[in-house]
Every structure is written in structure tokens, then in C-alpha cells.
């Protein structure tokens, strides 16, 4: 565990908390893509199948449970409790366009052809693109609330910090995982345009509005 990995995990946790708090305190999930949240729940479910078979540390197990619980709590808030506020007209991304290629690729390019390993790989590929419905929704409406921008910034920072962690681990331990690293780079690149808008607009107190 190094500072970049810990920072990544905490950014991820912060993103999840920001999202839950936003929905809970405003009693609304307007502007949030339920499709992306479904993909994140699917990601965590597929990745943490090893929760009971591969013990790494108490820290890892606790975080896995927290991520899983938060993912399903978010889905519950969006699709049950505050369903009326869910902006489904703008959340039109087709999930099968992301799930099927991620599943196909996981079957072909993986570290080992076993159920747990293919599911882990699927989760890595799916996570890389899981934010697309959310970014698509922001581009469709042309804007995002500040709190949604903070959520996206924290969520994007998480994988960016993991990349630094992987570079660090490569040099300090000789550890590398090509699948996670390449997918992590793709994931981070998807946020670049958003990062630019966040830094140039939101941090200066303006609303995130896309150029017309």
C-alpha cells in the first residue's frame, strides 16, 4: 500500500459518499445516470466475488463491502425511494453496448480462463467505460450541478491516482498488471475533457456548462 493507492481509494470513497449525500439531502437524483450506477454495481459485484476466497487485508475486505453496499444503496435510492426524480428521459445510453463488448473482451483477453478471473477481468473492462452513460447525460443536457461535478472529479481522480500507484509499484516492487493498467488508462482518458471543464469552470465558481 502506497500513498497513491490510498489516495485513489479515498477519492473513490469520497465520490461514492458525495453521490449518496447529494441524493439523500436533496431528496433527488436529478442529473445522475442510473445506467452508470447499474454498471458500477455490476462492476463491484463481478470484481468482489473473491471477497470470501481471496483475503488480502481487513482494509481491503471492509472497502469491498462498503463499495458494494454503497453501490446497491445508490440503486435503491434512484430506482425505488426517489424514483420520481430520476431523469430517465436523458439517460438513454444503451447498456448492452458496453456490457457485451466488456464481457466478450474478458473472455478473450484475461490472465487465466477461470470463472473468478474472467469475472474480475470483465469488471475491469466494464469499469473503464461505466461512466459513459453519465458523461453522455451531461453532454445531452449541456450542464451538470456543481455537486455532480465534484462527484465526477473525485471518481475520475481515483483511477488517475491508481495509474501513479501502478507506475510506483512497477519501479518499487516490479509489480505490474497490464490488463488493469491499460483499462485504467482508458478510464482516466475518458474523464480528461471533463477534468478540463472542471478546472477551468467549476473551480472558478461557475456552473459546469458545455460550450454550445
Amino acid at each position: 500500500m502506497n500513498i497513491f493507492r490510498l489516495g485513489g481509494d479515498l477519492a473513490h470513497l469520497l465520490a461514492i459518499i458525495i453521490l449518496l449525500l447529494k441524493i439523500w439531502t436533496t431528496r433527488s437524483c436529478a442529473g445522475i445516470s442510473g445506467k452508470s450506477q447499474i454498471l458500477f454495481a455490476l462492476t463491484f459485484t463481478a470484481r468482489y466475488l473473491d471477497l470470501f476466497t481471496n483475503f488480502v487485508s481487513v482494509y481491503n475486505s471492509v472497502m469491498k463491502v462498503v463499495y458494494l453496499a454503497a453501490a446497491y444503496a445508490t440503486l435503491y435510492l434512484m430506482y425505488v425511494k426517489f424514483k420520481a426524480t430520476y431523469d430517465h428521459n436523458h439517460d438513454t445510453f444503451r447498456l448492452e453496448f458496453l456490457i457485451l463488448p466488456a464481457a466478450g473482451l474478458a473472455l478473450i483477453i484475461n490472465h487465466e480462463f477461470s470463472i473468478i478471473e474472467v469475472m474480475w477481468t470483465f469488471s475491469i473492462y466494464l469499469e473503464a467505460v461505466a461512466i459513459l452513460p453519465q458523461l453522455f447525460m451531461v453532454s445531452k443536457t449541456g450542464e451538470a450541478e456543481s455537486i455532480t461535478s465534484h462527484y465526477l472529479f473525485a471518481l475520475g481522480s481515483y483511477r488517475a491516482l491508481y495509474i501513479v500507484n501502478w507506475v510506483y509499484r512497477y519501479y518499487s516492487e516490479g509489480f505490474y498488471d497490464m490488463i488493469a493498467t491499460l483499462a485504467g488508462v482508458v478510464q482516466t482518458v475518458l474523464y480528461c475533457d471533463f477534468f478540463y471543464l472542471y478546472i477551468t469552470k467549476v473551480l472558478k465558481g461557475k456552473k459546469l456548462q458545455l460550450p454550445a
Binding site: 481509494d9 481491503n60 469491498k64 490472465h111 478471473e117 474480475w120 500507484n165 498488471d177
Partner: peptide, 10 residues
């Protein structure tokens, strides 16, 4: 390499 994949990250 045929070592078991080691996923110690989240």
C-alpha cells in the same frame, strides 16, 4: 508467466 493472478487492489 503462470503465477496465479494476484489482485490485492480494489
Amino acid at each position: 508467466d503462470d503465477a496465479e493472478p494476484d489482485h490485492d487492489e480494489l
